[in-house]
Structure formats: C-alpha cells, structure tokens
Write a protein that binds this DNA or RNA. Structure first.
Lengths: 147, 147
DNA sequence: CACAGACTTGGATCCATTCCATTTCTTGAA
DNA sequence: TTCAAGAAATGGAATGGATCCAAGTCTGTG
C-alpha cells in the first residue's frame, strides 16, 4: 500500500521510524502550515490542535523530527531557532533586518554571484551571508566524530 | 600626518570616531591576529596585553567596533558569536560540523552554484547555508526602522 | 497484553548576552 | 595644566533560550 501519491503525516512519521503520536502529528502540521515558526509559536499551534503539550515535549519532538529529516532548523543570528517544513530541496532564506521576517528563496544555482538570490521576494538585500558546513581537513581524517 | 600607507590601530579608532583606549587597541589587535575568536578568547587575549579587562567591557567594545565597521561579527548557528578583523571584502565561512573551526573563503562570485566555494580549504562541504540580509517589502516601505 | 518509547510536571542549570548604577578615564577646551 | 563633559569601564545582577534531570503516567506498537 502506501499510495505513492501523498503520504499522510502519520505515514511520514512511521516512514522514518518514529512513533505516531497526536502531539507529533500536530507539531508537524503546525510547522508546515506556519512560516518559520519559533518554539513558542509551535507550542501554541500544537495546543490549538491537541489541547495541551509541554514545552519540553515540543523541544523533544522538534529534535526528533529534525534529526529524522522531516523538519529543518534554521537559526538566524540574533534570533531564537525557527523551524520549517521544507526539507530536501536546497533553499535559502531572506531575513529582514528590521522585523526578523524570514522568507524562502531558491538557491541561485548556475548563475550570478551568490550575492544575488534567484528571486528576492521584494526584499532589498544588502548582504548575503554564506556558511559552508562540512568537516575541516583535520576532522575529516579523524575516524570518529569527536566533538 | 596620517601617512596613507598603514594607519596605526589607534588612528583607525580615531578615524571612525571612537576614543582610543588601551583596551580597544588591544582588543582590535587581538581579534585581527586571532582566527575567528569567541568573546572569551578575545577577553583572554586582551588580558595578555593589558593585564585586565572585564567581560562586559569586551562586549561593549566589540559592539562599538563592530558598529563602526572595524570588526565583523559572525554567529554560526549552534556556537557563540565570533569576531574577525576582515571587513569590507565580501567573504564567507567554512564551518566544521565536528570541531567548529571557522575558515574564510572568498565569495564564489561569477561562477558556479553558490554551493561551491571558490576554495574549500580542504573542507569536505556538505551544505551551503545562505542567508540574505535586507529589508522585507513591508519594512523597506516604512519610513523609520521599527523593530 | 506488555514494553519501549513518548509525555508530563517541576524543577535545576547552563550559557551568552544585556542591563544597571557607580566609578574611572580620555579628550578637547579654557 | 587644569577641568568638566561625556564616553568607557566596572562589578553585580538579571534575562532568555535552551537543555537536562528524575519520577511517574500514558500510549503506540509488536
């Protein structure tokens, strides 16, 4: 089974080996419907759906879902962590210096300097900050992950 | 006066309208010699030079120097803020997921997808995170900066 | 059904950062 | 050189996001 079309939230959870609980389903839905929500906002959204959830449970679930690859965590310098449901595609973010609003942008692959977003969504961009994540030479030659 | 060649640290401070104090000179030198240092490391470096400085003074001075454009603050998600002396040029960073080491990279302007750094310095990059800073449509049409 | 895993409650704790009131110091002018 | 204005530095307290802990309850899942 598992119609290839569009798996339900529950099926997605199961698909990555996580238990399906009301809280997690509500959390996943909340994050996907929301727009780069912070932890508090997510907790509020989940409470709207299932009545109650503790902040700790929210943190726990966010970790689990992020680790499972169902959510992505972004942390614009200067503001608390935010989460989004868009994963898998390589997209970046526009952050407003004034109000902190976050918007998605596709990666400008293939053309232009990386300073230019493929679509600036109406933002007036004054800086592009790029962080390349990976392993430094020393760490990539080390067998295990030492932290 | 002010030989165009290479202004002293003190002259640079004066040049941006800041007072010249031993602490600031030492701090600026420390950051420039160091490699993406954190606040604690900077404080330690300054203490090596001038004997003593409070953490608060370090924060205050870092703010002042950053605002003045003499330093740049970078904040890789998951680690405390770091400061560097390279300003003015548009360069980005390589961050090691394992040890947190930060290295500079020039912007890959003009060629390649932004996923590819101009020189990866030996890092094995698995992700490029781009944050475009600017003002969202709403904020850019607003006369004053409301936060 | 039984159990591992998830959730709750209620702490405590950690860390980076900021705020406060007070004192000290740099600086430019007298 | 002396002085006053105002910026900078100080110690101490406080804030806020995030994490962790332990004990007990609940609940998916095999």
């Amino acid at each position: 089974m598992t119609a290839p079309g569009k798996p339900s939230t529950a099926e997605e959870l199961r698909g990555v080996g996580l238990r399906v609980t009301a809280a997690r389903v509500a959390l996943l839905d909340t994050v996907r419907e929301g727009d780069h929500l912070g932890v508090e906002a997510i907790a509020a959204g989940v409470r709207d759906r299932v009545g109650h959830i503790s902040l700790q449970a929210v943190y726990e679930a966010l970790h689990a879902l992020t680790a499972a690859g169902l959510l992505r965590r972004i942390e614009p310098p200067g503001s608390p962590a935010r989460f989004e449901g868009r994963v898998g595609d390589n997209h970046h973010h526009l952050v407003c210096r004034s109000c902190g609003t976050v918007a998605d942008v596709d990666c400008a692959v293939g053309h232009a300097p990386c300073l230019t977003a493929s679509d600036n969504r109406g933002f007036s961009v004054d800086e592009a900050e790029v962080i390349y994540w990976g392993l430094c030479p020393a760490c990539s030659s080390t067998p295990d992950d030492r932290l």
